[in-house]
Design a protein around this nucleic acid. Structure first.
Length: 543
DNA sequence: TGCCTAATAT
DNA sequence: TATATTAGGC
């Protein structure tokens, strides 16, 4: 409920238009904050409307946009049910300056605001807490100056446009279509009842992508996507439009990949490891759109040129059929099993079909192990103790899964893994080994790369799930499976951190290649129908 | 008729 | 550039 003070925007005020005092809409959950800002603003002679919910603020703006000159809200203030920040919504939907407050020690929030300032068309100001009268006054003065400047400019443009319009009308009044004109009018900004433009936030886009892959690229059509996304405000037209853009993007990406040649080469472990200097051109850029990286070839250093990256962690893995076959095929090799290998799903499904056939599962696993080019790199690590029955990880060593999955390669923790099927802590054949390993903490095997950098093998899963259900539940704690190498926070602060990902990847490949051979040998020499977990662990880590 | 999608408009 | 709308066709 909006609390208006003195200057209720709903009231008709004859002096309203004449007044030069800025009209603030202040949004904060915390009544104490609201009071504080309100007091300060009054002292500076600003007019204030307060409200404590983001959605309410948006509604208010939609109804009474012309009653406000500036919106002031906290950086973390959510705007919609999807949790995306209010200030982002306001900037995208309304042509109104936004002052975003954030606390002094919250550097990441501050940079978020900076990012938005760059991205958005609207003016965005950053006000650091604690808010003082001086700080508020200074920033609002900037807003005021900018507003005046803009108004002058708009007046100029408007008068010019009016002239042109009159000119056009007088020239060809018959040619003009009334319907078109009406339509044009309806699309003017700030027209009451105008439907807000649908903004494809990252979260919405992720939902879209999930739905598309759930259906399969070829079978994904707007209506079905819309149904899967299950968002009340979403129309089929919204989806159709986005799908169109998405397809164009996908096509472009696949053409680029084709130009780069086959991503399945003859990778040889530790072949041709070259110096860091040669890696300067490595482009490990953060991308903002994850949808199209599904089968991306990373332009890495020559020794590591067959890395396939995946951004997918399959939020739909509750159902094994949720993961489309297409995702798992090598782009340049028709129908060959492989491709993206974050394949809890595919193993789960195969397993599901053959769950009494251990040999079948084992053969898939061995097949994967013998293909070291199927390395996957993914950077976000999700350790959720609630979903892990083992204590294999120490949470302090890892970042929480705070970074969105599309923020890749140059920030956040990363993992390098080779998938060997749907695996998890609980079902790993190596689990027993870890449990008895006293000299090396569980899941923390140190290794150095060729440049003396220390990395940590977070876990080594050689196992497979014992049931499709395990594939889904364990993937919460182990989305990629296989072999992980993770870096600590300190390590990430090393110079050239982004490129060191490539080194870790190369190391991991080398390691895995050897491991695969050993596992193979072990299997061939074993009379047991299953791997001897303990023995395998010893072979790999003590050998 | 409903829906898809390329083209076009905003 | 991103999103909305239109229009032709299945």
């Amino acid at each position: 409920m909006a609390a208006n003070n003195n200057n209720n925007p709903h009231d008709h005020d004859p002096d309203h238009q004449l007044s030069t005092a800025l009209r603030l809409l202040v949004v904060d959950h915390d009544p104490a904050n609201l009071n504080l800002i309100q007091d300060l603003a009054f002292q500076c002679n600003y007019r204030v409307t307060t409200c404590c919910e983001g959605s309410e603020a948006l509604n208010l703006l939609r109804e009474k946009r012309e009653c406000f000159d500036v919106v002031l809200c906290d950086v973390h203030m959510p705007g919609m049910v999807d949790g995306s920040p209010l200030f982002d919504h306001v900037l995208q939907e309304f042509n109104i300056p936004v002052v975003v407050t954030c606390s002094m020690d919250d550097a990441s929030s501050s940079s978020t605001v900076m990012e938005s300032m760059k991205k958005q068309k609207g003016a965005c100001y950053n006000l650091v807490k604690p808010i003082t009268e001086e700080g508020l006054s200074n920033i609002l003065q900037s807003v005021s100056i900018e507003k005046t400047r803009k108004k002058d400019y708009c007046d100029d443009v408007e008068s010019e446009e009016t002239m042109n319009k009159k000119k056009r009308r007088s020239l060809s009044i018959e040619e003009r279509d009334d319907h078109h004109d009406l339509q044009h009018q309806q699309q003017q900004p700030n027209t009451p009842n105008k439907k807000p433009r649908f903004v494809w936030t990252n979260e919405r886009h992720q939902k879209f992508v999930d739905a598309v892959f759930h259906l399969g690229i070829d079978k994904a059509v707007p209506k079905k996507i819309m149904e899967l996304m299950d968002m009340p405000q979403l129309t089929r037209e919204n989806v159709a439009s986005h799908l169109q853009k998405f397809r164009i993007h996908m096509k472009k990406k696949s053409e680029e990949t084709q130009q780069q040649g086959s991503i399945i080469g003859n990778w040889k472990p530790n072949n041709n490891v070259i110096g860091r200097e040669a890696n300067n051109n490595t482009s490990l850029k953060k991308t903002t759109n994850n949808a199209h990286q599904i089968t991306q070839t990373l332009p890495l250093a020559p020794y590591c040129d067959n890395v396939i990256s995946s951004t997918a962690d399959y939020p739909l893995y509750q159902s094994q059929t949720a993961i489309p076959d297409a995702t798992f095929k090598f782009p340049n090799n028709n129908n060959q099993f492989g491709g993206l290998i974050n394949n809890n799903g595919i193993i789960g499904r195969l397993h599901h079909q053959n769950n009494n056939n251990n040999n079948h599962v084992r053969s898939i696993m061995l097949n994967l192990m013998q293909q070291p080019q199927q390395l996957m790199v993914q950077n976000h690590y999700h350790h959720d103790p609630a979903h892990s029955s083992s204590n294999m990880f120490q949470q302090s060593d890892y970042y929480p899964m705070a970074a969105p999955r599309y923020e890749r390669y140059d920030e956040g923790p990363f993992q390098v893994g080779m998938s060997r099927g749907g695996v998890g802590c609980e079902s790993s054949p190596l689990f027993d080994y870890y449990n008895t390993c006293s000299s090396t903490p569980l899941g923390h095997h140190q290794m150095n790369n060729s440049f003396g950098e220390s990395g940590t093998i977070a876990e080594f899963h050689g196992g497979y799930n014992t049931s499709p259900a395990a594939a889904s539940s364990s993937s919460l704690s182990s989305p990629a499976a296989g072999f992980f190498s993770s870096r600590t926070q300190q390590e990430q602060q090393l110079p050239n951190y982004p490129t060191s990902l490539a080194y870790v990847a190369a190391e991991a490949l080398s390691y895995l290649s050897n491991s695969a051979t050993q596992v193979n040998n072990l299997y061939n020499s074993s009379s047991s129908s299953l791997f001897d977990d303990y023995q395998l662990g010893q072979t790999l880590f003590q050998g």
